[in-house]
């Protein structure tokens, strides 16, 4: 049951998760990923299962390193399996790789550290920490046992065309109300089950990802939304709607960038000098990144 990616895909897949994007959306005939029952019943299998638990309930199983209500699986759908939602198995194959975000070659474990620092608005577990070992084991197991279709660009998040007209907060607000609020709530704060378990993640505010996360960039958010949202109806929004609603989502405040220097202007100049980041911009009457609530 062991299938390997073709050399060609290996050569082309050495771009970073979310940073370098394949050029067309995935179509039918997705790769086959192993099922939970295939996890071996040995010491390695235990680590794989632990990684899966962390991936699904990150706040519970990696509590010390998580500062919001999100879990890995909230964005990396189907427990990190789904093509087009930056699947974990493809990310595993993509490192070590150079990342423009920190101007150096990162290992996979270092890339995972950044997920905790930005997307989880927490702290990076030290290299060698059992949490990173478990997540890496889960990613490796999934990739090793996958039957991967080499013709399909399933890794990362498929790129989206530039918007026809500049994205609009007001139009995005309408798209949000019609397509997103059902699950993520009118106030963007997500929804929980009766036992407190977060089912639909908060999209902005103090319990969401911080300003340093990939999802806080319009191009990445728009591409992710276009491909994957609403859940089960991926591809149903127009490109323009995806850009508009990404602008609306990222036009709200969220936890401060951990690289914050003490000045929004300076932090913007150093880390957000991109038209895809609204950090430091005036949106809907607020300078983003400047909200006291974002400094927690």
């Amino acid at each position: 049951m062991k299938y390997l990616m073709t050399l060609a895909l290996l050569m082309t897949s050495l771009t970073t998760l979310g940073d370098g994007l394949p050029d067309s959306p995935p179509e039918g005939g997705a790769s086959l990923l192993p099922a939970d029952r295939d996890i071996p019943k040995d010491e390695f299998g235990k680590m794989v299962r632990q990684g899966q638990l962390i991936f699904s309930n990150t706040g519970q199983y990696a509590r010390a390193y998580v500062g919001n209500d999100l879990s890995c699986r909230n964005c990396h759908l189907d427990q990190g399996r789904k093509a087009g939602s930056a699947p974990l198995w493809a990310a595993f194959l993509s490192y070590p790789a150079y990342r423009s975000k920190n101007h150096r070659v990162n290992t996979f474990a270092e890339r995972l550290q950044d997920c905790f620092l930005y997307s989880m608005n927490g702290k990076a577990p030290p290299l060698g920490d059992p949490i990173l070992v478990a997540l890496e084991s889960y990613a490796y197991w999934m990739e090793k046992n996958a039957k991967i279709n080499p013709r399909l660009p399933e890794r990362g998040i498929p790129q989206i065309q530039a918007p026809g007209t500049p994205p609009s907060y007001e139009r995005g607000k309408t798209v949000y109300a019609n397509h997103c609020a059902l699950c993520h709530g009118v106030d963007g704060q997500g929804r929980r089950a009766g036992d407190g378990h977060v089912v639909f993640p908060p999209l902005w505010g103090s319990r969401s990802f911080n300003w340093g996360a990939g999802m806080a960039h319009l191009n990445k958010a728009a591409a992710y939304i276009k491909t994957n949202m609403p859940l089960s109806l991926g591809g149903s929004l127009s490109d323009q709607e995806a850009w508009d609603v990404a602008y609306f989502m990222d036009g709200h405040d969220r936890p401060q960038d951990p690289r914050f220097t003490g000045s929004v202007d300076e932090t913007r100049a150093l880390f957000h000098r991109s038209r895809n980041s609204l950090y430091g911009h005036l949106v809907d009457g607020h300078v983003l990144g400047n909200d006291p609530a974002s400094h927690n």
Partner: peptide, 13 residues
């Protein structure tokens, strides 16, 4: 997910 069918638990908790 190969047919864009999410898990029931994804929405029903």
């Amino acid at each position: 997910w190969s047919e864009n069918v999410p898990s029931c638990d994804d929405c029903h908790g």
